[in-house]
Amino acid sequence: MVIELARRMAASAEGLTLDEMARESGVGRRTAERMRDAVLALYPAAEEVSDPPTKRWRIRGGLSAFEQAPTTTELVELSKAAQGLRAAGEPGRAAALEGLERKLKSAMRSTTLNRLAPDLEALVRAETIAVQAGPRPSADEAVLAEIRQAILAGQPLGFIYSRPGAEARRRSVAPCGVMFGRANYLVAADRESGRIQTFRLDRMSAVRAEDGVAAPPPDFDLQAFASQSFGIYQDEIEDVVLRVTPGGAAEARAWRWHPTQTVEDRPDGGVEVRFRASGMRELAWHLFSWGDQVQIVAPARLKAVMAAELAAAQAALERA
Score class of each variant (00 low, 15 high):
Ile160Glu: 15
Thr54Arg: 14
Gln155Cys: 14
Ala313Glu: 15
Arg171Thr: 04
Lys55Asp: 02
Lys55His: 03
Ala214Tyr: 13
Arg301His: 09
Ile160His: 12
Gly92Met: 04
Ala107Glu: 14
Gln149Asp: 07
Arg29Glu: 04
Glu318Thr: 10
Gly134Cys: 15
Ala315Pro: 00
Arg30Ser: 08
Ala11Asn: 01
Ser25Trp: 02
Thr73Phe: 03
Phe220Cys: 03
Ala183Ser: 10
Thr31Ile: 02
Asp211Tyr: 10
Thr260Cys: 03
Val143His: 13
Thr112Met: 03
Glu74Pro: 01
Thr111Pro: 00
Glu141Cys: 04
Pro217Phe: 13
Val39Gly: 12
Tyr185Leu: 01
Ala10His: 11
Ile232Cys: 04
Asp239Val: 11
Val297Gly: 09
Gly134Val: 15
Gln223Ser: 04
Arg170Asn: 06
Ala311Trp: 07
Lys105Val: 09
Glu272Ala: 13
Gly61Gln: 02
Gln295Gly: 06
Gly154Glu: 06
Arg243Lys: 13
Val76Glu: 01
Ala304His: 07
Gly154Lys: 04
Asp37His: 04
His258Asn: 02
Met35Gly: 03
Arg319Phe: 15
Leu186Val: 08
Leu302Thr: 14
Thr17Leu: 03
Leu63Gly: 04
Pro218Ala: 15
Ala315Ser: 06
Arg274Cys: 09
Asp235Gly: 06
Glu48Ser: 13
Gln197Trp: 00
Gln293Arg: 14
Ala11Ile: 00
Ala214Pro: 03
Val213Asn: 02
Ala252Met: 06
Ala307Trp: 00
Glu24Phe: 03
Leu40Arg: 15
Arg148Leu: 11
Leu120Val: 05
Leu116Trp: 05
Asp239Gly: 10
Met35Ile: 05
Gly248Gln: 11
Ile232Tyr: 09
Ala249Ile: 07
Glu101Phe: 01
Val27Ala: 05
Leu42Arg: 06
Leu310Thr: 13
Gln197Val: 02
Met179Gln: 13
Arg23Phe: 08
Ala94Lys: 01
Glu141Val: 15
Gly28Met: 11
Ser193Glu: 07
Ser205Pro: 06
Gly279Gln: 02
Arg56Pro: 03
Ala189Cys: 00
Arg195Phe: 00
His286Met: 11
Ser172Val: 11
Thr31His: 10
Thr245Met: 06
Arg256Pro: 08
Thr17Pro: 02
Ala130Asn: 10
Glu74Gln: 07
Gln68Val: 12
Gln293Cys: 05
Val207His: 05
Arg170Ser: 10
Met21Arg: 00
Gly181Gln: 12
Ala189His: 00
Ala133Glu: 10
Gly269Met: 07
Ile232Arg: 04
Val124Met: 03
Ser79Asp: 13
Ala313Gln: 15
Arg203Ser: 08
